[in-house]
């Protein structure tokens, strides 16, 4: 019994906690399927407040998962975000780890 507990704990430790947070997962998933996106686009899709989104982006940037690039488009400052190769790799690992975890869950019976 105790062995099972230990195994479970070890398996969960493989999950990237930084990506596991739902808001950051949304950001990573959206950036994973595009080449790059403007900050405004990410905010509109994730429906986060500016402060909240900036905090999550900073954490992901600090970890080297995404790069933030500032450009001037028709004299207006725009911020573009894209996943780094490290970020893509981390997201791939996270997804395969999650799939693995879900597949090991026992079937739930609908009967009371």
């Amino acid at each position: 019994m105790s062995n099972n507990k230990d195994n479970t704990a070890t398996n969960y430790s493989n999950i990237d906690r930084l990506i596991h947070e739902p808001a950051r997962y949304d950001i990573m998933a959206l950036l994973y399927v595009v080449e790059q996106a403007e900050y405004l686009f990410i905010q509109n899709h994730t429906e986060m407040t500016s402060g909240n989104l900036t905090t999550h982006i900073s954490k992901l940037e600090k970890e080297g998962y995404l790069s933030v690039q500032k450009k001037f488009v028709r004299k207006k400052p725009k911020t573009f975000l894209r996943l780094t190769s490290n970020g893509r790799k981390a997201f791939d690992n996270y997804r395969s780890e999650m799939k693995k975890q879900i597949s090991t869950l026992p079937e739930v019976s609908n009967e009371p």
């Binding site: 595009v34 080449e35 996106a37 403007e38 686009f41 509109n44 488009v73 725009k78």
Partner: peptide, 9 residues
């Protein structure tokens, strides 16, 4: 209004 986006390959 929506923000620019560049989609994948």
């Amino acid at each position: 209004r929506m923000g620019a986006v560049e989609f994948g390959k």
